[in-house]
Simulated scan of single mutants.
Amino acid sequence: MDIENWWPLLDPATRQWLMDNNGDVVPPGVLDQITAVAGHPEVDASWAGDSVPEGFLLSDEAIDWIEDTANDEDSAGG
Rank of each mutant, 00 (worst) to 15 (best):
D60L: 02
L18F: 11
I66G: 04
L9K: 14
N5I: 12
D60T: 11
G77Q: 13
H40G: 04
I3Y: 02
P53W: 06
A70W: 01
T69K: 15
V26A: 02
E4W: 01
G39L: 08
P53V: 11
D44N: 14
D68F: 06
I3D: 08
A70E: 08
D20P: 02
D64A: 14
P28S: 14
D64Q: 09
T35F: 08
N22I: 12
S51I: 14
P12K: 09
Q33F: 00
V25D: 07
D11G: 08
Q33C: 09
V37K: 06
D32G: 11
E61K: 07
G39I: 07
A48Y: 06
N21I: 08
W65D: 05
T14E: 10
D64R: 09
V43Q: 06
W17P: 01
D32E: 14
W65L: 07
P41A: 07
D64S: 12
A45W: 02
W17L: 09
D74L: 15
I63V: 15
P27T: 13
W7H: 04
L18R: 00
G77Y: 10
W7F: 12
L18G: 03
P12L: 06
A38W: 01
D64K: 12
A45R: 00
P28L: 10
S51D: 13
A62Y: 05
S59A: 13
M19P: 02
D24F: 10
W6M: 13
N5F: 07
P12A: 14
M19D: 05
G29M: 11
A76M: 09
V37I: 12
S46H: 09
G49D: 05
S51P: 00
N71G: 11
A70D: 10
V52M: 07
N21S: 11
S75C: 11
I63M: 10
L10P: 01
A45E: 13
I34K: 03
A76D: 13
V52H: 03
P41R: 00
G23H: 07
M1C: 06
P12T: 15
G49R: 06
A70S: 14
D32S: 15
E67G: 15
V43N: 05
V30I: 15
W6V: 05
D74C: 02
E73A: 14
W65T: 05
G39S: 11
V43D: 14
G77W: 09
A48G: 10
D44Y: 13
V52P: 00
V37Q: 08
E73N: 08
P53G: 04
L58I: 08
P8N: 12
W7T: 01
G77E: 06
L57C: 15
N5W: 01
E73L: 15
G49H: 10
M1V: 15
D64I: 07
V26K: 03
S51M: 10
D2I: 03
M19L: 14
D44S: 12
P12Q: 13
I66H: 00
D72P: 00
L31C: 02
W17N: 04
V43A: 12
W6H: 07
L58K: 03
G49K: 06
D50S: 11
E54I: 10
P8T: 09
E61L: 11
N71D: 10
W65A: 11
P53R: 10
E4Y: 01
G23N: 07
L18Q: 09
E54W: 11
A36R: 07
W6P: 00
A38E: 03
A38V: 02
D74P: 00
D24E: 15
N5D: 12
G23I: 03
D74F: 10
N71M: 10
P27L: 07
R15W: 05
